[in-house]
Computed example of a mutant assay.
Amino acid sequence: MLFEYSYGFYLVAAIAVLITGISKSGFSGGIGALTVPMMALFVSPLKAAAIMLPILCFMDLLSILAYRKNWHGRNLVLLLSGALPGIVIGTLTFSYVDPDNVRLLLGVVTLVFGLSYFVTRQKVEAVATEPSTPLGLGCGLLSGFTSFVAHAGGPPVKYFLLRQRMDKTLFVGTNVVFFLVVNQVKIIPYAWIGQFSTENLLLSLVFAPLVPLGIWLGLKLHKVLSPELFYKISYLMMVVAGIKLIYDSFA
């Protein structure tokens, strides 16, 4: 059954997995939002999301080895307190919610916030500010929900954390731990609604060997980038992700 897919699918999916690994370990995601749409050129979006979830979980486990000591406790508590109910809401409303409407709303918010950095030319400060409780819970809730229904939970977390101008390694580490928990939790409802077929799991296994290479490349890039360049790239990735989410909602 694995031989029924074209060479184009395997090539594009392999590139998508590498990009996601680099993005996740080096920049806390962003470009990773393009993965499912790239694979959806050849298979259904639901199938692409099901194939990617085990791969994302593998990436999280490798990334946490590098960032296990670099994460912000209060931010994680706030975000996860909102994300877990968001996943439950996503599970219960999965059959009724139009993912395209979710992508459109999330894409607009992501694009506006990403562009605001370049319009106002904000300077990067390496000191984390006190996180806002209402904003953290709200962004966590939105991230948990959108992560479940559209694999697009990164932008709300970035919106919350980038505003604090924390150290780049602390920023990525907090993202890594957050999505380690979220993606592991998502396995249960994804299995419950029948997303993990034997074929999907075999395809995940085919692309799994590319994960360590992507994670390694991302870690190398993270070490050599200055904080200012890191934040510019992170915001630029938000702009790209926002445009892509808006495009997907209409396409």
Rank of each mutant, 00 (worst) to 15 (best):
V102C: 11
A33H: 08
N200V: 11
L229C: 06
M238R: 10
N101P: 00
T146S: 15
L225K: 11
G86E: 02
L46S: 14
I64L: 09
A66D: 13
L65M: 09
L236H: 06
L11H: 04
T35S: 15
V239H: 12
S63C: 14
K168D: 12
A208R: 02
T146K: 07
E199Q: 14
M166W: 15
M59F: 15
S143K: 05
K186D: 04
L34G: 01
T93Q: 09
I31T: 06
F113E: 05
S6N: 06
Q184K: 10
G194V: 10
G8I: 03
V112H: 10
A152Q: 07
Y96F: 15
V206S: 03
Y247H: 11
Y7L: 10
L236M: 14
M237S: 13
M39T: 00
I187F: 13
G214P: 09
V182G: 13
T20W: 07
G82N: 08
I188D: 02
E125T: 10
V108F: 08
G242E: 11
E125G: 12
V108R: 03
S234E: 08
G144P: 01
L11M: 10
N70Q: 13
P155E: 10
G154Q: 00
A49P: 07
S143E: 04
V124P: 00
Y247G: 01
Y5E: 02
G242S: 15
P131I: 02
F148M: 04
G218T: 03
Q164C: 01
Y67E: 02
I51V: 13
V206K: 02
L217P: 09
F94V: 05
H72T: 01
S25A: 09
V102D: 12
A251P: 00
A40W: 14
I243S: 06
I215L: 09
I22F: 11
L170Q: 11
P37Q: 00
L41I: 11
L161V: 07
L18Y: 11
A16I: 06
T129E: 15
V43D: 10
V182K: 10
D248R: 14
V102Y: 13
L236A: 15
F118T: 04
L170V: 09
E125F: 13
S44T: 08
V97S: 11
I187W: 09
K244R: 05
Y190S: 11
A66H: 13
A208V: 02
I246Y: 04
I233D: 06
I15N: 05
F118Q: 15
M238D: 04
Y10C: 00
G218E: 03
L78P: 01
G107T: 14
W71E: 00
V88C: 07
F145T: 02
